[in-house]
């Protein structure tokens, strides 16, 4: 009897302890499981594909860096392909959501986009001061007029410096400039050269660095690129003042934003595709981008462009909201 009682209690204990262990195990395991489905529904998520101008690239990736920090679920990628390369290879074929451009979209690109049914809205991102640089040892030159600049860079250019101005040395001009896929190239033609077209007798590259190194290594070289490179390395090269009829003006954030630095200060653009704006995370990024275009620390301090004015920003935001509304209908 005593033994059977013992057995009973023992049985209960064993069952109880088994149950307790199972319960604890289940609890423990529950903390170690996950569901098999994809977890959607978090605040903002999804890819954002961006290509285009290498000039806008630093600005776009700086803004994206902050946005990605705020929304870790989004998956952005940015390629620096040149404005034209981005439009024709990626944006107008519907493969990217944004295309950055350092000049407005061109008619043939508009056609291509229309053929593929890609609609877009044009947003101004910042202002750049296209900078003409020479070697820091070239103390014989401080500024050029727009006409002189055109003589140097037109399709049928002058060959030596003394042909530009008599007091310049009789040395050959070595030119370093943007490649023809670059928006910088297009803008330079539009602002300086016009109908005359761009010379092909120059070192063409997408990398500002190569232009800088080329000019820094040759006393009789001349080059042009976006302001950012010169802004970060003011001692490596010498920027020329540009005389548009009202005396020479040196490129700087101030002269570009006040409108004195003509005709080489130019707007930079980004083109979101309207279809993509239908997705909430892309629309949100576009809004964030336009908000950031007036952020002085980021646009001027970190990247080296002229921030947009409040007025421009409001205008862009209006355009963007209309496009988003159209996309999300």
């Amino acid at each position: 009897m005593a033994s059977s009682h013992d057995a009973d209690t023992a049985g209960i204990t064993r069952r109880k302890s088994l149950a307790a262990i199972a319960g604890a195990g289940a609890l423990g395991l529950a903390g170690c499981t996950q569901s098999g489905g994809s977890d959607g529904g978090s605040s903002l998520s999804g890819p954002i594909n961006i290509a285009g101008s290498s000039t806008v690239f630093p600005l776009m990736s700086a803004v994206m860096e902050d946005f990605a920090e705020e929304y870790p679920e989004i998956d952005p990628d940015i390629s620096s392909t040149g404005s034209g390369g981005g439009f024709s290879n990626f944006f107008c074929t519907g493969d990217t959501d944004f295309n950055n451009a350092s000049r407005p979209i061109q008619p043939e690109e508009e056609e291509l986009c229309a053929e593929n049914g890609v609609e877009y809205v044009e947003l101004i991102a910042a202002t750049d001061a296209l900078t003409v640089v020479v070697n820091p040892d070239a103390d014989w030159i401080d500024s050029l007029t727009t006409d002189e600049l055109a003589q140097i860079w037109r399709a049928d250019p002058v060959q030596t410096w003394d042909e530009v101005r008599d007091e310049f040395p009789n040395e050959e001009i070595n030119r370093f400039g943007a490649a023809d896929t670059s928006g910088t190239y297009d803008y330079f033609i539009e602002a300086i050269l016009g109908e005359e077209g761009h010379t092909s007798d120059y070192q063409a590259t997408e990398q500002d660095n190569s232009i800088a190194n080329g000019v820094a290594g040759d006393e009789y070289a001349i080059g042009y690129f976006g302001f950012a490179y010169y802004f970060q390395n003011p001692d490596q090269l010498k920027a020329l003042g540009i005389d548009d009829g009202d005396g020479p003006v040196e490129p700087s954030l101030e002269t570009a934003s006040s409108g004195e630095y003509t005709p080489l200060s130019r707007p930079l653009f980004t083109y979101p595709s309207i279809e993509s704006l239908g997705e909430e995370h892309i629309a949100e990024f576009a809004r964030y981008f336009v908000e950031q275009t007036t952020n002085e620390d980021l646009v001027a301090g970190d990247v080296g462009y002229v921030p947009a004015t409040e007025e421009t920003q409001e205008e862009q935001m209006g355009k963007l909201e209309d496009a988003i509304e159209q996309a999300q209908e």
């Binding site: 890819p47 594909n49 290509a51 690239f57 990736s61 994206m64 860096e65 990605a68 870790p72 998956d75 952005p76 990628d77 940015i78 390629s79 620096s80 290879n89 990626f90 493969d95």
Partner: peptide
């Protein structure tokens, strides 16, 4: 068309 810059490691073969 590989990206110049991405901010997150790829999480599938198709990203």
């Amino acid at each position: 068309g590989a990206a110049t810059t991405v901010f997150r490691a790829p999480d599938s073969l198709f990203s």
